[in-house]
């Protein structure tokens, strides 16, 4: 009887497709994927090398876990497979996009200065990080996710953001 139950369960697991919840970080992960459709990376950036996957780095606590695992399996960005990893400061430059979960001002300055001009898109979700030089920073209003864009950081790092993206964002000059 037991084995039978297990077989049923395994069958069910195999058959049921993968679903995710609308948790805050599932939605943020989806935002990140969407952003890439409306952003052009600077010329010469590693992202244009078709032999390496699109590399997402998570700096700090990784709340994406499951969602990113799903995306790695099923989603392509810029027609490339996705690879993600949790980062320390040594690996910052091996990314095309870094999500900064949480860090001190000192760490943030270090990340910004290390990645400056390297064609690495920075995204965060902490108050004030947009002003400090992160390209896109999430914030919440009434349990809804919004984002702000630091336009001068975007321009100085030679990214090209679409007007649609800019229209939806709160702009930090």
């Amino acid at each position: 009887m037991k084995i039978k139950n297990i077989i049923y369960l395994l069958n069910a697991l195999v058959i049921i497709p993968i679903y995710a919840q609308f948790t805050e970080y599932d939605v943020k992960a989806q935002f990140m994927e969407r952003f890439t459709q409306y952003i052009e990376w600077p010329k010469g950036a590693a992202i244009y090398n078709q032999e390496i996957p699109f590399r997402i780095g998570i700096y700090g606590e990784n709340n994406f876990e499951y969602k990113l695992n799903e995306m790695v399996q099923f989603v392509k960005i810029k027609n490339k497979k996705i690879k993600y990893k949790e980062l320390n400061s040594d690996l910052l430059l091996d990314c095309d996009l870094i999500f900064i979960s949480k860090c001190s001002d000192e760490e943030l300055s270090k990340i910004i200065s290390l990645t400056k001009g390297k064609g690495i898109l920075l995204i965060s979700d902490s108050d004030g990080f947009g002003e400090k030089g992160v390209h896109i920073n999430f914030y919440k209003v009434d349990n809804k996710i919004h984002f702000e864009i630091n336009l001068s950081a975007v321009k100085s790092d030679l990214f090209n953001f679409s007007s649609r993206l800019l229209r939806l964002a709160r702009i930090i000059e």
């Binding site: 919840q21 609308f22 948790t23 805050e24 970080y25 599932d26 939605v27 989806q30 935002f31 969407r34 952003f35 409306y38 709340n63 919440k140 349990n143 809804k144 996710i145 919004h146 649609r164 993206l165 939806l168």
Partner: peptide
């Protein structure tokens, strides 16, 4: 969902 749709989703805070 589009970005606009995503912005209208109520999310559960982790």
């Amino acid at each position: 969902l589009s970005i606009e749709d995503l912005m209208n989703l109520n999310v559960i805070t982790v």
